[in-house]
């Protein structure tokens, strides 16, 4: 069983939900990332989603677009993201790390090379936003062969047929995009989320992480009652943007937010 699956199983047995923060690797600069990941774990993160910056982040709103631009300005790249994961793993062998990004950097590296390097670095899951299962048979096979979980997105308009397909091909968890829009959007409707998650549960046994639009502790708690995990990205990344050069402030605000979410979810 993968590190992600066993973590989610332990949480389930304990009656808790996973808190899954997202930050972009290398934002605002590469030295910030590994200490930030440790601090997020300290503040209550169960699984880390680490964004791989890309020049053309089509599915992201302005907050994560700018995070990508800041990271790329410091020459962050997929190779360097893997080095950061390796560094994180030197002192944390427990917390699953999911790489989240776009396909082209992986294509440029080559699927087999990426898969080997990711495994070696200690990556547990890969979520590629613009890679639907129809286009990724070869990549899925390579990932699962080395026990890296391919994680797929589900959307409010995903058909039953597609949900079932992702349920068959996905590992670890499914990421339910709670609204039609880009990351950081602000019109999440809990009743809609609840209805769709009911449908997803009837079609697959994989755990469900819910993300896009979770902004504060109250929303995290509400969403956590519906799914198995809550992904929080833009709200955290926005703290990095707001703090500018003052990365200590960014770290304080991010961990404070995560702690408040953790407390609200566990209450």
């Amino acid at each position: 069983m993968s590190r992600i699956s066993s973590k989610l199983l332990r949480l389930k047995q304990a009656g808790r939900k996973a808190l899954i923060p997202f930050i972009t690797a290398g934002d605002p600069h590469p030295e910030f990332t590994v200490p930030a990941l440790h601090a997020l774990v300290e503040a209550g993160a169960d699984i880390i989603e680490l964004g791989v910056p890309f020049s053309d982040p089509m599915a992201d709103g302005p907050v994560i677009q700018k995070a990508s631009e800041r990271a790329l300005a410091h020459k962050m790249s997929l190779r360097k993201v893997l080095e950061l994961v390796r560094e994180f793993r030197q002192t944390d062998t427990e917390t699953p790390v999911v790489l989240m990004g776009y396909l082209n950097p992986v294509e440029a590296m080559g699927y087999p090379v990426f898969t080997d390097k990711a495994k070696e670095a200690g990556v547990d899951g890969v979520l590629t936003v613009d890679m639907p299962p129809e286009e990724s048979e070869e990549f899925i096979a390579l990932l699962t062969a080395v026990d890296i979980d391919p994680i797929f997105l589900l959307a409010p308009n995903s058909s039953a047929e597609r949900i079932a397909k992702m349920g068959r091909l996905g590992r670890g968890y499914l990421y339910y995009v709670s609204l039609k829009g880009v990351t950081g959007a602000s019109h999440l409707d809990l009743a809609d989320v609840e209805r769709k998650i009911g449908e997803i549960r009837s079609l697959t046994d994989l755990p469900i992480g819910v993300g896009f639009g979770v902004k504060n502790a109250e929303m995290a708690a509400a969403v956590s009652r519906l799914g198995d995990g809550v992904v929080v990205g833009s709200a955290l990344v926005g703290k990095i943007e707001a703090a500018g050069e003052n990365t200590d402030q960014a770290l304080d605000e991010m961990t404070a937010m995560l702690r408040s979410m953790r407390a609200a979810m566990d209450a």
């Binding site: 599915a59 613009d130 286009e135 997105l153 589900l154």
Partner: peptide, 9 residues
Amino acid sequence: RFVAETLML
């Protein structure tokens, strides 16, 4: 067709 899930339908 390399797009995010929301655009597949």
